[in-house]
Design a protein around this nucleic acid. Structure first.
Lengths: 188, 188
DNA sequence: ACCATGACTGACTAATCACTCCACAAAGGT
DNA sequence: ACCTTTGTGGAGTGATTAGTCAGTCATGGT
C-alpha cells in the first residue's frame, strides 16, 4: 500500500536525484517539490538512505515486471530473448529518468546498501536463462556471468545511443532489431 | 606543474570519492587524509567542484596516454584495435579506483561541468578510427556513434567482470583475447 | 458524542559543510 | 638586507543539512 503522498515523494525524489545527485538534493527540497511537509517525508522513510533504497527497489520492480511481458514458452529461445531485449530498451526509452537513476545508483556507494543476496536473487533468473541457452548449444560455451555483463552493458549502451539520437518509432524499432542481431551474432 | 601536496590531495580525494561519493566526502576529510591543512586544499582548487573536475581530467589524461601505447601504423587495423582494447582493460584492472571514479563521474550531474566541446574533442579521434574501418569495409556499415557506445560499454562490462572474478595474469590475457574476438565478430 | 489512531505538519536543533581569512614561512630576485 | 611571491596552516563563519518532536487534524469505530 503506497499512499498518494508517498508516490509524490518518490516522484519528486527521482526528478531531483537525477538533476542534482543524491547528496546534492536536500530532503527539504524533496518534501517541498512533493507538496508535503518535511516531517511527512520522515514519517514514511526513517532516513534519506531508506528513501533512496525504496526508490531504487520500486523502479527495479517496475522494470522487472515489464521485462518479461509477452514472453511465451511456445516461442523459441531467440524470440523470447528478443522480446526481453526489446522490452528493456523500450522501457528505458519511455522512462529515461528512471533508467538514468538506476545507472547512477549502480555506480554509487549506495549500491552497497542493497544486500548481496537481494542482488543475486534478482540476477539469478537471468543467469538461468543464459545457462539453458549454453546447455542447448545455442550460445557459445562461455561463463554465463561473462555473457550477462556483456548483455547488460550492451543494453546500457543502446539506451544511451537511443537517448542521444531520439529516433522516430519506426527508426527505433529498426535499431532494436539491428542491434539485437549484433548481440546475437556475438553470443552464438 | 603539480606539487607534492597537490598530488596527495588528488590521491586522497580519489580514494574518498570512490568510498563515499562526491558529496559524501567533506573537503575537510580530503585535506586530513592528504596530510594537508584545510586552507591548502582551497589554495590549489578554488572550489570542491574544481577539484572534482581536475581529478577527472587528470585520470582521463592518464588513460588516454596509456591507451595508444604500442600502436603502430605498420600493424593492421585489427591488431592496433586489439592493442587499444587490451591497453584499456589492463589499465582498468590496474587502476580500479580510477576506473570506478570515471564511471561514477560519467553517470553523475558533475558530467555537465565538462564542456561539450571538451568531450567531443576526446571522442573525435576514436570516432575517426571507427569511420576509417567502415570506409575500408572492415566494419559493418553502421553509424559510428552506435559502434562507439557499444564498444565503450563492452569494455565497461569486461572491466566489471574482470574485477569480479579477479583472474590470474594468464587467465586475464585469455579473457581479453576471447572477448575481443566476440567484439570483433559483432562489428564485422 | 466521544475517543483512538495514525497521517501529517513545520518550527526547531545539533551537527556539518564549503569556503574565508589572516598570519606566518620559505624561496628567490634585486 | 629587503621585498615580493607563493605556499601553508588552521581557527573561524554563515549557511545548510538530516532528522526530531510536540502537537493538529481527519477518519472511523463505538
Amino acid at each position: 500500500m503506497v499512499s498518494d503522498k508517498q508516490q509524490e515523494i518518490l516522484k519528486a525524489a527521482l526528478r531531483l536525484f537525477v538533476e542534482s545527485g543524491f547528496h546534492g538534493t536536500p530532503t527539504s527540497r524533496i518534501a517541498k517539490e512533493a507538496g508535503v511537509a518535511n516531517g511527512t517525508l520522515f514519517h514514511y522513510y526513517k532516513t534519506k538512505d531508506e528513501l533512496i533504497v525504496a526508490l531504487y527497489s520500486s523502479i527495479k520492480g517496475k522494470l522487472n515486471e515489464r521485462m518479461h511481458n509477452g514472453t511465451q514458452s511456445e516461442l523459441s529461445f531467440k524470440e523470447n530473448l528478443k522480446i526481453i531485449y526489446a522490452n528493456t530498451l523500450n522501457w528505458a526509452a519511455e522512462h529515461k529518468e528512471e533508467f538514468y537513476f538506476v545507472q547512477q545508483f549502480n555506480t554509487s556507494p549506495f549500491l552497497s546498501l542493497i544486500a548481496p543476496e537481494e542482488i543475486s536473487r534478482q540476477t539469478k533468473p537471468h543467469l538461468e536463462i543464459l545457462e539453458s541457452a549454453v546447455r542447448q548449444k545455442i550460445f557459445k560455451n562461455l561463463p554465463v556471468e561473462l555473457m550477462f555483463v556483456l548483455l547488460n552493458n550492451h543494453i546500457y549502451g543502446m539506451s544511451q545511443y537511443i537517448h542521444n539520437i531520439a529516433p522516430e518509432d519506426a527508426q527505433k524499432k529498426q535499431l532494436i532489431d539491428d542491434s539485437f542481431d549484433l548481440l546475437w551474432r556475438m553470443l552464438t
